[in-house]
Nucleic acid binder design. Structure first.
Length: 128
RNA sequence: UUGACAGGCUAUUCCAUCGCUGUGAUAACCAGUUAUUGCUGAGGAAAGUCGGGACAGCACAGGGCACCUUACUUCCUAACAGGAAGGGUUCAUGUUUGAAUACAGAUAGUGCCACAGAGAAAGUAGCCUAUGUUGAUUUAUACAUCAGCAGGUGAAUGUGAAAACGUGAGGUAAGAGCUCACGCUGUGUAAUGGCGACAUUACAGAGGGGUAAACCUUAGGGGCUGCAAGAUCAAAUAAACCGGCAAUUUUUGUUAUGCAAAAUAAGGGUUGCCCGCCUGAUGCCGGAGGGUAGAUUGCUAAAGUUGCAUGGUGACAUGUAACGCAGAUAAAUGAUGGAAAUACUUAUUGUAUUACAGAAUCCCGCUUAUUGGCCUGUCAAUUCU
RNA sequence: GGUCCCGUAGUUCAAUGGAUAGAAUGUGAGAUUCCGGUUCUCAUGAUAUGGGUUCGAAUCCCGUCGGGAUCA
């Protein structure tokens, strides 16, 4: 069982990696999220790195923006074992992931969690 | 008691589980990571970036111009276009209070004042003909009458946002502060009160519009840029620099596979080779330099917060006691469950805890957004004594 | 985070502080046509917002709101 942590190293912070991700990654939409993914060479660190985006253009209020980001982060933290189990077995690959929120209003936490679980399962199916 | 207005205060609390930021302790090892555990973690505006500072870099002998900025007084403050207490002016009320106030200078100069009007700053196509003069009529001339010029004047009418202090009387050819009476507004001098702005009184003398949020003048202030400032460490890559090593083919001399001299496009790309074409004086290693990705620092103990006392009308100051109060960086402060309290309701219970809003170097102000509750003051209405 | 700039009809632009805020285009109606287009006529519609200065403000000054640019 993987612990439900979400550390700094599990986040995607490197500028060049992000550029790479948006340049060459593939993406799909599952409302209210838009997922961009890319497989990368694994050196060290966690098997999956995640970037959460809430656009300032779509959500004007900073408070609402912060709240959505926190909800998404919380939902990912609780359910990341779904995708970790898959990727930790493949030793040479790691996954870069961007979760882009494209809704314009705040939704309930339960909806966010349910939707995110669906997305993570779909990622695994695509991989296989 | 209710309502309105103004001002101030506050921003639900606790527990459990899973996580995040910072930090202290302990342990492990791969020596900067992991694990355990303790403490800590968003506002009154964190917002706008409007004003001012701290701090940092650059510049700087001193002064001036230019540019920007301020503009009633005294005080407060590190400083301010901020605040406090006053003064003047304007407006409202209607006789005493409230509100607003970029509130130096229009007699230093320049510009502008549409339309209308004679005229928008020393002015008429108006008025007058006393005085001088020309002409005409009449007459012996003069007087007189008419017209023009010189001249005088600044009235009335009307226009306009604004018309040359206002009203009345005198005066005159016509008029005019030209004179007088009563007022209005500036200026100067003196006295009294006030720290001062200023107020009151007396005397003298004046009355050439408005506009400086038009240019400007006067007086005071300002060096410029901003934490993406600045400091330290530093992969990678390109070109240039320095040092070392290596390197193509041909010819000649010499006994020589070696050495010396001279000449030479060697290599790479284009399908493995050849031709052709393109590119092209090289390749490797090291150094120094520069400082990108990135990391560390700047970074949070401070013009500190709260209580009390003293001084002051007040802003505030002084003294004393306690507290030790975020520090992220594609950016932490969250999720779930339960309890208490409050409000509303269908009163077993259920719903809500909301508004505006999220630190980004720090601080002081200002401005703007805003829900519910509490407190204070003023005014109005009603009821009771 | 800092520093600057700009807001005029539905759209693109004008307008010296002077009054009905103008032009093109769009939209609507009418005329022309057998019908549509072209053309002609008429209408429609705006100074981002709240104050101030001024006799008078789109313009000058201040606050607010919105948009944009730039600095690694």
């Amino acid at each position: 069982m993987i612990r439900q942590t979400f550390r700094k190293s599990e986040r995607l912070c490197s500028k060049s990696k992000i550029e790479n991700l948006f340049k060459r990654g593939t993406s799909f939409i599952s409302y209210p999220f838009r997922i961009t993914q890319l497989s990368d060479d694994k050196n060290d660190g966690p098997p999956v790195q995640v970037l959460i985006v809430v656009s300032k253009r779509r959500v004007k209020s900073a408070v609402a923006r912060n709240r959505i980001k926190r909800m998404v982060r919380e939902a990912y933290r609780k359910n990341k074992h779904i995708i970790w189990d898959n990727y930790s077995t493949i030793s040479s690959q790691k996954l870069l992931l961007c979760i882009n929120y494209i809704g314009k209003t705040i939704v309930e936490y339960k909806d966010v969690e349910r939707k995110l679980i669906l997305i993570l399962q779909r990622l695994i199916e695509n991989d296989e």
